[in-house]
Amino acid sequence: MSYIYLENVQKSFAGQPVLKDVCLSIEKGEFVAIVGFSGTGKSTLLNLMAGLVMPDEGKVLFDQREVTGPGPERGVVFQNYSLLPWMSVYENVRLGVDAVFREWGDEERDRHTRKYIEMVNLTPALRKRPSELSGGMRQRVSVARALAMNPQTLLMDEPLGALDALTRSTLQDEIGEIWQKEKKTVVLITNDVDEGILLADRVIPLLPGENGATLHEGVRIDLERPRDRKQINHNPRFQELRKRIFQILREIGKSTTPAEDQDRDRGLPRIDPVHQRLSLSDRIRRFRNAHVIATEN
């Protein structure tokens, strides 16, 4: 029996079709990566599973019950971290713990909060505010907050999209390790095919179409675990899988590209920089800082 189940889901925003006939079935404990072009509705798909968005048509089931809203059994790691800037690392994680484990005492909640902060190696930054942390550290807090609620499923929306390559690979390894340890069902939205292959049991390309994107049937990643990022690159099976996924994405890229552009290799998923969203005051401060530095030089 599938754990997360989407049946003929349709979704459009302001008359613009985003998803069409999306069917998906994920088993308990499975790690699924959904890869695709930017702006094809990957985040919408995740928000549907999270219960933040309702489908126009079709059904979203979680553990055989219809999803009617967000719930603590589905932890979400947002694309832009979504940490609360007025709270410390501890308080951000603790907020979720307090909301979920209402029957626990103060000491138990405290121990639990600290355990998950330790799991993402942020104990030294316990009292720091998000503005004092690097992008990678912020994302770790976001992961810790989601995990500390002890969800059965972890839904991650391009969690590493905004990070530099080095931090990205470190966090990929951490996510892999945490999954091994916690054995949660994980849905990872990503635009990085290699990331999907490295981490997931199944990579499902999201294919854009005129009436909204649809899901490909998916490619099973039958590589041995634990997967080592250094060795995997030389693994012929890895290269084969990689080629196949790119081919699926490229096919669809061709079919939606105007004829004169067909020679140009536009089929690859484009990685757009995903900038962290800043509040107005942060933007003003950033501007001021930039200005001050410029005049001082």
């Binding site: 933040l52 967000p70 947002f78 832009n80 907020l95 909301a99």
Partner: peptide
């Protein structure tokens, strides 16, 4: 920010906690 309200929804904060926190 809508993301912050989404956090409140995902964390299932009570209306009172959403307002105060």
């Amino acid at each position: 920010e809508k993301d912050h309200l989404n956090v409140a929804r995902v964390l299932r904060l009570s209306p009172w906690k959403t307002v105060t926190k």
